[in-house]
Nucleic acid binder design. Structure first.
Lengths: 351, 351
DNA sequence: CCCCCTTCTCAAAACGTTTTAAAAAGCCTG
DNA sequence: CAGGCTTTTTAAAACGTTTTGAGAAGGGGG
């Protein structure tokens, strides 16, 4: 392996100049820099990470914890995020260490990783209300960025979508189409994002369609089966008046709802409108559902570049309270949403 | 953070002695070592990993790749292994970096990780016949250990179970009970372990029960659904003569088979015997199935300590061809296996 | 031509460990 | 107590970077 010294003797320069030339410092001459870069390429120079780390005091490694479900599985979205995040961090010369956790204590795996003295910081995900992790890490002065927004205006770095708006935008569309009996299949209740969506849903419904009975706001894992089961019970009419529209937390859930409608001989959007939030997982194409699915659209992986950059900035000393981004998901209207069926314009409460 | 030098001035020793004392070198006096250890504990000394790495030329980090399925999910067994492996490696002062891959090229993710110049070696898993990864890594001189055995007596380090024996032991039990029409629900055909089990199955059957028709050796993902679907079709009798015993690649598959038998009103083991191989995943308890499941038993996580140790030995220069372990799974006979039903002792071929 | 200022380069220190080569200390033998 | 051996300790080099503090080269104005 070629070292800085190899390059320096090759060119008759000092290692200091070579180091600066390669790291883009401004005080090195243009032709010198070019010579150095050429020599580095020619000799196949690769900086020794350990030496860099010793000199800079940084490890160049950040951590992320996979929280396993009880059945030892992990979220699809998690892998999508991890894949993109790895790429974005690599581009910024950081490595991502993944660790798997199946315990009950949410901070224990972070503590374990910190004890290994390997990490410069963390990427957190899936915040829950009252999440203890930010406090734990802040207390120890460990930099981190949160993927997903805890609703109570936190003082740490995060990137999230406006979940209240996700609900509000979908409800606005559906109420404009005349729908008043809209049901919600939300994400798992323990997550902060689900609480935000539920709050946004209830607020928007109260303002534009009237209050929603308990039974028509449900939640569950983001699977096709969740959507199928809940929709089947609602649409059969056994649980009370039938919703004319169902809003889903994810596209797999919406797929289940569509299947339930099909099985019951209901047409979408003739008898039922369906909308969902779309995390844009690579293997799911809501535009190709039959009918094509109306969604609020916010690709999970879009968060990765900002998260990586925020973490770098944080490591470089930027105040975390400045590193906060909330984006608004886009609304994509497709064929699964349509006008309310004639005679079904009555809200939940009056029925 | 306290450094070696801090300890050395505190005690009036040289850093060399302190370093040696803490690293267990034999040439340091007993009382000196005790003094050093006490001082280290008192000052809260933690070695600087970056400095260690620079000095030793090792990174202390090994990698492992998660190969995602097409639906972006990952094996349950994978997480079980990763959890234990992390613990075992930590105990040996190594860190595990997990990377996620969803591409088609099996070596690309390894190449990518090597380019990051972070790793000392790899843990590979899930070998396939003709796996290109060992060759790729060996060519570059990158140490690695394989979890799972490729059947063709490889020259690299590995830890695996004797998959032919897994089949043979189960078949020996079932044939002793009089069964001749035994069907196999194997693991996914692309994996080497499945090929070995299939070969062992066919060999044992040929010797003790006669050849098995194509249709009664099937494979699929290791899910309950796989077992249910296949068993339903076989036991309905539509596919030909009914098997009197079904051997399953995993316990979830066996759970599906048991459900199918239940749905068809067949008693286990009265009408059908069921056996499976048990990887001993923490959330699945074959002893509590109804009836309790007869299995060949080889906990996945038992591989982790040997794998970690082999990798260390390999990093320390042990010849990989010496680091090979094949263990034999234990046979645990429970209630799901019993004597062949009267009049059903005829083998596949004569029916 | 001198001086000053800017632009560029350099030698050396620093990061905290491990390892080498050698010296010091301790012990025994004769 | 000299000599030789073993045990214990040491100073210094090495690992390959980054960073500091200073000096050299280059250019322009007086």
């Amino acid at each position: 392996m070629a070292t800085l010294k190899d390059i320096s003797v090759e060119l008759g320069l000092s290692v200091a100049t070579v180091s600066r030339a390669l790291n883009g410092f401004p005080e090195v001459g243009a032709k010198t820099r070019a010579r150095v870069q050429a020599a580095a390429a020619r000799l196949g120079y690769r900086p020794n990470r350990s030496a860099q780390r010793l000199a800079t005091g940084r490890s160049g490694v950040v951590g992320m914890i996979v929280k396993l479900r009880a059945d030892m599985s992990a979220d699809q979205t998690f892998f999508d995020v991890v894949t993109s995040l790895t790429a974005e961090l690599s581009a910024r010369d950081l490595d991502l260490v993944l660790s798997v956790d199946q315990g009950d204590d949410p901070v224990a795996p972070y503590k374990r990783m910190l004890e290994r003295d390997l990490l410069d910081g963390f990427v957190l995900n899936a915040p829950v209300p009252g999440d203890p992790r930010p406090g734990f890490l802040a207390e120890r002065g460990v930099p981190f960025v949160m993927h997903g927004q805890a609703h109570d205006a936190p003082d740490y770095a995060f990137y999230g979508i406006d979940n209240a708006a996700v609900s509000a935008d979908a409800i606005a569309l559906l109420t404009t189409l005349g729908h008043r009996r809209i049901a919600l299949i939300n994400g798992e209740a323990r997550f902060a994002f689900a609480a935000e969506r539920a709050a946004g849903f209830h607020a928007a419904m109260a303002a534009q369609a009237g209050p929603v009975p308990q039974g028509f706001v449900a939640d569950g894992p983001p699977t096709e089966n969740t959507g199928y089961t809940l929709a089947l019970s609602w649409l059969s009419g056994r649980a009370g008046p039938r919703p004319t529209a169902i809003l889903c937390a994810t596209t797999p859930v919406a797929a289940g709802v569509l299947r339930a409608a099909r099985d019951l001989g209901l047409s979408v959007p003739g008898d039922l409108s369906v909308a969902a939030h779309d995390d844009a997982l690579p293997n799911i194409r809501p535009a190709h559902f039959t009918p094509a699915l109306t969604v609020t659209h916010a690709p999970m992986r879009d968060a990765c570049a900002p998260l990586a950059q925020m973490l770098i900035d944080h490591l470089n000393g930027a105040p975390p309270a400045r590193l906060q981004t909330v984006i608004r998901a886009g609304l994509i209207v497709r064929a699964s949403s349509g006008p309310v069926p004639k005679g079904e314009e009555t809200p939940w409460q009056t029925t």
